[in-house]
Simulated scan of single mutants.
Amino acid sequence: MPRNEYQSQLADLRSDVLEMSDTVAERLEMALNALETNNHDLAQQVIDGDSEINQQYLELEKQCTDLIALQQPVAGDLRFIAASFKIITDLERIADLATNLGEYATAGETNLFPDIDLQELGSVTLEMLDEAMAAYADDDREKCYTVDERDDDLDYLCEVASDTVVRELIESEQMDSDEDIEAFMEDVSRFLLTIRDIERIGDHSVNIAARALYMIDNNDELIY
């Protein structure tokens, strides 16, 4: 295959990975808005759209495997293709977590704890994802480290949010019936799962940044 065509395929792969990330970020933002507004229709759009992202993933997986099998890339090109494959895996998992958030939004009460700003937590994850993908797009090693550092902030915010839930549970008034208690605890469980899944989205963004750094500098510091 002529060198120019090969380089064009590498450029197409990068462009397609970035397109997938745009779709994933859009769905995540929709899920977070559905949680905030209790918008079941918006949440259902996120849930129904998961199959589209799964299809994008499979098509990109084939692009990666075909490039490796047919072109036998080495050095920087091989790191780029391998990083792209790992990144689309993390993007697909972020999309799965966004789908979870959509399901939580349709399942019950989402505004149990007004002192906890889920939008703030979600905004941090969206910014982390954006910076991680910018690192991949622009070979920006500094952004890789920025994403890793921001994850500590997100972990702290999620820990505070979870502690707030526990504290308010302890201080809450006793309910009238077992049915009320059961329904309330189901909502609380979903709320805690929401916090957990938002934190996991941040972890996947760090994974993306780590693979971008490995791609750029053959540096596995953030992977481990």
Score class of each variant (00 low, 15 high):
85 F>E: 02
85 F>T: 15
86 K>T: 14
86 K>V: 10
86 K>N: 12
86 K>P: 09
86 K>R: 13
87 I>A: 05
88 I>N: 01
88 I>H: 07
88 I>L: 09
90 D>V: 15
93 R>I: 02
94 I>Q: 07
94 I>W: 04
95 A>L: 00
95 A>V: 00
97 L>S: 07
98 A>I: 13
100 N>R: 09
101 L>Y: 06
101 L>T: 12
101 L>E: 08
101 L>M: 15
102 G>W: 04
103 E>C: 09
103 E>S: 11
103 E>D: 04
105 A>G: 01
107 A>L: 06
107 A>Y: 12
108 G>D: 02
108 G>C: 05
108 G>V: 14
108 G>T: 14
108 G>Y: 11
110 T>M: 03
110 T>E: 09
111 N>G: 10
112 L>I: 03
113 F>S: 02
117 D>C: 13
117 D>K: 13
119 Q>C: 15
120 E>V: 00
120 E>D: 13
121 L>I: 07
121 L>R: 02
121 L>S: 08
122 G>P: 09
123 S>Y: 11
123 S>C: 12
124 V>E: 10
124 V>T: 11
125 T>L: 02
126 L>W: 06
128 M>D: 12
129 L>S: 10
129 L>A: 02
130 D>N: 04
131 E>Q: 14
132 A>H: 06
132 A>M: 10
133 M>D: 11
133 M>G: 03
134 A>V: 03
134 A>C: 03
134 A>G: 03
136 Y>C: 01
136 Y>F: 08
136 Y>S: 01
136 Y>Q: 01
136 Y>K: 00
137 A>F: 12
138 D>V: 13
139 D>K: 11
141 R>V: 04
142 E>S: 01
142 E>R: 15
147 V>G: 09
147 V>A: 00
147 V>D: 02
148 D>S: 07
150 R>N: 08
150 R>P: 11
151 D>N: 10
152 D>S: 08
152 D>C: 01
153 D>W: 07
154 L>S: 05
